[in-house]
Computed example of a mutant assay.
Amino acid sequence: MNIFKISPIIRITLLCLYIALTVPLPFLAEFTNAPIPSSVLWLGIVLGAIAVYAALSERVILDDDKIQVTYPNWVPKFFRKGWSLSWQEIDQLKMRTTGQGGLVYYFTSPTEEKAYLLPMRVAGFNKMVNLVAKKTGIDTADVRPLAQPWMYLILFACTMVLWLVDGWTIWTATHLAS
Rank of each mutant, 00 (worst) to 15 (best):
1 M>I: 06
1 M>P: 10
4 F>T: 05
5 K>H: 13
6 I>K: 11
8 P>Q: 08
8 P>W: 10
9 I>P: 00
10 I>E: 08
12 I>D: 00
13 T>Y: 08
13 T>V: 08
15 L>A: 04
16 C>Q: 06
16 C>V: 12
18 Y>C: 04
19 I>V: 15
19 I>W: 07
20 A>E: 05
21 L>Y: 01
24 P>D: 10
26 P>G: 07
26 P>R: 04
26 P>V: 02
28 L>Q: 11
28 L>F: 06
31 F>G: 00
33 N>L: 12
37 P>L: 06
38 S>M: 03
41 L>W: 11
43 L>K: 02
45 I>S: 04
45 I>P: 01
48 G>Q: 02
50 I>E: 00
51 A>M: 10
51 A>T: 09
54 A>I: 02
56 L>P: 12
56 L>F: 05
57 S>V: 09
59 R>T: 12
60 V>L: 11
64 D>Q: 13
65 D>Y: 11
65 D>N: 14
66 K>M: 07
71 Y>S: 02
73 N>Y: 01
74 W>M: 04
74 W>N: 03
74 W>D: 03
75 V>A: 04
75 V>M: 08
75 V>D: 04
77 K>T: 13
78 F>N: 06
81 K>R: 14
81 K>V: 03
82 G>C: 09
83 W>L: 05
84 S>D: 05
84 S>R: 11
86 S>T: 15
88 Q>W: 00
89 E>R: 12
90 I>T: 07
91 D>Y: 03
91 D>N: 15
94 K>W: 00
98 T>F: 09
101 G>Q: 10
102 G>W: 07
105 Y>E: 08
105 Y>Q: 04
106 Y>P: 01
107 F>S: 07
107 F>R: 08
108 T>V: 09
109 S>I: 01
110 P>Q: 13
110 P>N: 12
112 E>I: 01
116 Y>C: 06
118 L>K: 05
118 L>Q: 05
120 M>R: 04
120 M>L: 04
122 V>Y: 01
122 V>Q: 07
124 G>V: 05
125 F>K: 04
127 K>N: 11
127 K>L: 13
130 N>A: 14
131 L>M: 13
132 V>C: 03
133 A>R: 14
134 K>H: 11
137 G>T: 08
139 D>W: 01
142 D>K: 14
142 D>Q: 14
143 V>K: 04
143 V>T: 09
144 R>V: 12
145 P>W: 06
145 P>Q: 12
146 L>T: 07
146 L>R: 05
147 A>F: 15
147 A>S: 09
148 Q>T: 13
148 Q>K: 15
149 P>Y: 02
151 M>P: 01
152 Y>Q: 01
155 L>C: 11
159 T>M: 07
159 T>L: 08
159 T>E: 09
161 V>G: 03
162 L>W: 14
162 L>E: 02
164 L>G: 15
164 L>D: 01
165 V>Y: 07
165 V>C: 07
167 G>D: 03
167 G>M: 08
170 I>V: 15
170 I>K: 09
171 W>S: 13
173 A>R: 07
174 T>H: 01
175 H>K: 15
175 H>S: 15
